[in-house]
């Protein structure tokens, strides 16, 4: 809008380059807003974790990587600057002009911010999990399933992902044991039926894995029965963990309003409780988390931010008169 000539000054800074952040970038870029998108990981977010997207309208089937690459290209073509693999190390969201420090050395400022940090798979966070990641512990059945040909494996979790992935892993494994903390599954009926009907799948309910053990690679796990408290050790070749999702909002605790699940609280314009700060995508309080809902949020947040910038500019002009 009114650029002061400082290369680190933007109209809008978007935090996160998943589908929500990239869509915001597309809309802001097209509206000729100086826009910076900052991303901690690779561009595309969870989209690049998806082998095939078959439910994005207008595109019959596409890999998540390709869809993300196209969104990135669109945003860049419209003039948006995208910086990936950077770390947001500090920020100040209060006041008319907000600042964001990156990698502890560069500071960017803008009157509007869009938070689009998405989410990530939850880890069990028990002893041995880091040590045996990639050496028996996996979070991706399609990536690592074939390392477990004719092996005995465990799937931890009881939602749709856990049950669907357990069924898909029976293509490789000799046996799949689902370990779930509750006495029933939190999944669609058809997913539960399919898992129950599979002769290779067995179930350990009301239990959780408390430790991973091995020598160079995973060899056994400790499983605790949550009702009796009994702990048993079980020899195992592999463990796949699908225990849900956590929003990437830890850095923003106490800076914008979050609900008890750590999701950003927004109004219908996707504005947070801090003026000029908007949020979009999987990190906000909402029920359905899909690419389509994330891009819709990115659109709304961008348009709301543009509205805010017009008011900001009018205020500045008024002050100058």
């Amino acid at each position: 809008m009114t650029w002061d000539g400082n290369p680190n000054t933007y109209d809008v800074i978007v935090v996160g380059a998943g589908p929500a952040g990239l869509t915001a970038g597309i809309y802001l870029g097209r509206a000729k807003m100086r826009t910076l998108v900052l991303n901690e990981g690779p561009v595309g977010g969870q989209l690049v974790l998806t082998h095939e997207i078959a439910n994005y309208p207008g595109v019959e089937s596409i890999s998540g990587y390709q869809l993300a690459a196209t969104m990135k290209k669109q945003a860049s073509t419209f003039g948006c600057t995208i910086r990936s693999n950077v770390a947001v190390t500090n920020f100040d969201l209060d006041g008319e002009v907000k600042t964001i420090e990156v990698n502890g050395k560069e500071t960017f400022c803008a009157p509007a911010i869009i938070l689009a940090m998405g989410g990530r798979s939850r880890m069990l966070s028990v002893p041995g999990e880091q040590e045996f990641k990639g050496k028996g512990i996996s979070y991706c059945a399609t990536c690592d399933g074939d390392f477990f040909q004719d092996k005995d494996i465990i799937v931890v979790g009881g939602g749709n992902s856990a049950l669907e992935e357990a069924v898909s892993l029976t293509k490789y494994a000799r046996s799949v044991t689902i370990v779930h903390q509750f006495d029933e599954f939190q999944a669609f009926a058809h997913a539960i039926e399919e898992a129950r009907a599979n002769a290779k799948i067995s179930f350990i309910m009301q239990s959780t894995v408390t430790e991973f053990m091995g020598n160079g690679f995973l060899q056994s796990v400790k499983i605790r029965n949550l009702v009796s408290g009994e702990i048993t050790e079980r020899a195992i070749d592999g463990v796949f963990i699908f225990i849900g999702y956590v929003p990437n909002t830890e850095k923003f605790v106490g800076r914008v309003q979050l609900n008890s699940g750590g999701e950003v609280v927004v109004n219908s314009s996707l504005e947070t409780n801090v003026q000029g700060v908007y949020a979009a995508g999987d990190s906000i309080q909402k029920k359905y988390r899909q690419v389509t809902t994330a891009v819709a949020d990115g659109t709304i947040a961008a348009l709301s931010a543009i509205g805010h910038l017009h008011n900001h500019r009018a205020n500045q002009l008024e002050k100058a008169l």
């Binding site: 690779p42 561009v43 690049v48 974790l49 998806t50 890999s63 990587y65 693999n85 991706c140 990536c143």
Partner: peptide, 16 residues
């Protein structure tokens, strides 16, 4: 690797 979710981030890091 393959063109999968665990591999793509590593290729991107290398590229950068």
């Amino acid at each position: 690797g393959r063109m999968g979710p665990m591999c793509i981030p590593v290729y991107e890091v290398m590229d950068e």
